[in-house]
Design a binder for these strands. Structure first.
Length: 302
DNA sequence: CTCCAGATCC
DNA sequence: GGATCCGGAG
């Protein structure tokens, strides 16, 4: 792959168009523009893993109001945490976030560490989240690699469709090659590129006609070869899967106003296939999302 | 139907 | 690398 020097005309042109677009079009999400602590930024990133930002915002406000810092979240009950997670999906993220809060509270005196190696060692924090926190919360110059940035950079700079699947070495090299040298600019670059991918340069139907990069986009110049052919991930069903059943089970628990257990008989009415139901009860119990009682009644863990 | 600001396990 | 884990907006 050809190198793309930072000072190449193409990169300068992309930057000069992307930054003004960001100034005019950045969504006013509650954790942006210096209004959140580093911990708040981390919470927003964890909530946003596989969940759209627009859905995250109201949950984040309620969550941060209840538990403003890691110490507060560390002291919450599991039942409160799972309930507050609501319908964000993938509730194991909520448990990991609380585990993360405990580590931060106990080992880091309630302050997020600022080294990549320490961040990525935290529960529920992978490469993306660690990089995002470093860039967005601490202003560190680091390339953020997510599905949006991979798609935008691959299209605009290389003129080819992003393949999807796990991030490749080439993806990382490209993101690092294009990342502005100045830390403040790199922060804006990361956020603006992600925002563009989320709102304009989308996977299936990009709105090229309103894209600030249109005139300089190599993907447009090449005639958008293979648009949306690269699957972002293997197709995932939902209906009939254990994920649906697990969701139904947790919804039954959440809907209880008190901490009263849910009887197995009620669960069977929600999902008559008892073998799958039992499997899901076992896995939820193993995950620590429910407590399985001897008669197959369930309740939230303490 | 599609896709999502991923992490984790195998 | 592949599979699993949720749920809603478009």
């Amino acid at each position: 792959m050809a190198d793309l020097p930072l000072d190449s005309p193409r990169v300068v042109a992309l930057k000069s168009r992307l930054f003004p677009w960001w100034d005019d079009n950045a969504r006013d999400l509650p954790w942006r523009f210096g209004r959140a602590t580093p911990w708040g930024i981390l919470v927003s990133e964890v909530m946003s893993q596989q969940t759209q930002m627009s859905r995250v915002a109201p949950y984040w406000i309620t969550w941060m109001n209840a538990w403003p810092d890691a110490r507060a979240l560390a002291k919450a009950s599991t039942a409160e945490v799972i309930t507050a997670w609501g319908h964000l999906g993938y509730p194991r993220r909520a448990l990991r976030l609380q585990e993360c809060a405990r580590v931060v509270a106990e080992q880091y005196d309630n302050r997020l560490p600022q080294r990549y190696e320490e961040l990525i060692a935290l529960p529920g924090v992978g490469d993306y989240t660690a990089s995002a926190v470093l860039s967005f919360a601490f202003g560190t110059r680091i390339a953020v690699i997510d599905t949006n940035i991979r798609r935008v950079l691959s299209r605009a700079a290389l003129g080819v469709e992003s393949l999807g699947g796990a991030a490749t070495v080439a993806d990382r090299k490209l993101a690092n090659d294009l990342l502005p040298r100045d830390s403040k600019e790199s922060n804006v670059w990361n956020q603006a590129t992600m925002e563009l991918g989320a709102t304009v340069c989308t996977a299936k139907n990009p709105q090229c006609e309103i894209c600030p990069l249109y005139e300089k986009c190599n993907f447009v110049a090449a005639g958008k070869p293979g648009l949306a052919e690269g699957r972002t991930r293997p197709r995932q069903h939902f209906k009939g899967t254990n994920r649906q059943v697990r969701g139904l089970i947790l919804h039954a628990l959440r809907s209880k106003t008190d901490m009263e257990p849910v009887r197995y008989q009620e669960l069977v009415k929600l999902w008559p296939k008892s073998a799958q139901l039992d499997e899901c009860l076992m896995s939820l119990d193993a995950d620590g999302l429910i407590e399985l009682l001897p008669d197959k009644a369930i309740r939230f863990p303490k």
